[in-house]
Design a binder for these strands. Structure first.
Length: 305
RNA sequence: GCCGAGAUAGCCAAGGUGGUCACGGCGGAGGUCUGAAAAACCCCAGAUGCGUGUUCGACUCACGCUCUCGGCA
């Protein structure tokens, strides 16, 4: 198995395609946004036309219920209104990998969502429980202080073991409360979390590459260019169409850089200039956060570009 | 040229009888991360246009200068 991750706009897909050729591989996406259908232009799903060849012609020219294979597995697996977690991702990924194995192909995982990758490579705490949306809805209206109190009343140890940042983060608090109040909850979970399920033991990693920018101003420059390109390629129409299909700003898939800003522009909350500026800023900030997170993985061999 | 309004961090911006003044937001730096992650959150740095005066003390008051905006000419 080959894994390629790194900052956004570093040419991960391009490298992956090269390696696919060299190692008889097929690409598997682990980008949390490209998982979504209809989010194409702004998430950069477009691939060089060579890979389009792999598209199986729709059987007999009938309209396509055929799964689109755009040369990359795990594109377009859910609609923008659907919840999708790192757990779901791992579950989707396993059969794909198995299939590649059977066909003697080298899986080439490409993407920037390190959390997904992390859960696949290093496992998830088996004590965790699935999301409880009803509970979340209720908890979402509570203040941070109240959430803290609630968690402390349920499992003081869990709260104590959270770091300062997480203790003030409503999402993290909600998640902990969710786990603590699930019926199968472990009363006093150990400090470092429970056992983790090893997922990928059958798949040794041949190459684990991280792409990053050495020069931050360069990163910004490239992102500016990419945003301009995506606008030219119809980013605004893409958003309009998605809204026309009935998807809402609040849908998980549309909580995505680029979409958020364009929607604000369409709603006249932002001028076009402001929307573009914000889009670029958010993307640069995202790229930095990616690196902060990935840096901690000592298995990644970094390539500066 | 005259009248009015204003000049607070890279940008936007609040303030008060003169008392270590200096709210916020954006942007910037660094960080957190085990089922929402292109998410959510933590944290750090940085400012009173220039000069003179009044005063124990001025970002705040007075005068002058420079600049900006609006109006008159």
């Amino acid at each position: 198995m080959i894994v390629i991750t790194g900052q956004t706009a570093t040419g991960k897909t391009k490298l992956a395609l090269e390696l696919a050729e060299k190692y008889n591989g097929e690409l598997v996406n682990f980008d949390s946004r490209q998982i979504y259908k209809y989010l194409d232009i702004i998430t950069g799903k477009d691939l060089p036309s060579t890979s389009e060849v792999k598209d199986p012609p729709a059987g007999g020219g009938k309209t396509s219920e055929v799964i689109k294979f755009k040369g990359v597995w795990l594109y377009d697996v859910v609609t923008p209104d659907q919840y999708f977690s790192s757990y779901d991702f791992v579950e989707k990924l396993k059969p794909v990998i198995e299939d590649l194995k059977k066909r003697g192909k080298t899986p080439i995982l490409v993407g920037g969502t390190y959390l997904y990758l992390k859960h696949f490579l290093y496992g998830i705490d088996i004590n965790n429980s699935p999301p409880n949306f009803k509970l979340r809805e209720k908890l979402n209206t509570m203040s941070v202080v109240d959430l803290q109190k609630k968690l402390i009343s349920l499992t003081p140890n869990v709260f104590e073991n959270m770091n300062h940042s997480d203790q003030l983060n409503p999402r993290r608090l909600i998640r902990k409360i969710e786990i603590a109040s699930s019926t199968s909850a472990v009363k006093d979970p150990p400090a470092g979390g429970g056992k983790t399920a090893e997922v990928n033991k059958d798949w040794p990693i041949k190459l684990f590459i991280g792409l990053r920018y050495q020069d931050k101003s360069k990163l910004r420059q490239i992102i500016i260019k990419r945003v301009e390109e995506r606008l030219k390629n119809g980013a605004i129409d893409e958003v309009k169409n998605i809204l026309k299909m009935g998807y809402k700003v609040s849908d998980p898939g549309l909580k995505t850089i680029g979409y958020t800003q364009i929607i604000k522009y369409l709603k006249k909350e932002f001028t076009k200039e402001k929307a573009i500026e914000d889009w670029i800023n958010k993307e640069v900030q995202y790229a930095k956060r990616q690196l902060t997170f990935m840096k901690k993985d000592k298995n990644i061999s970094w390539k500066d570009i």
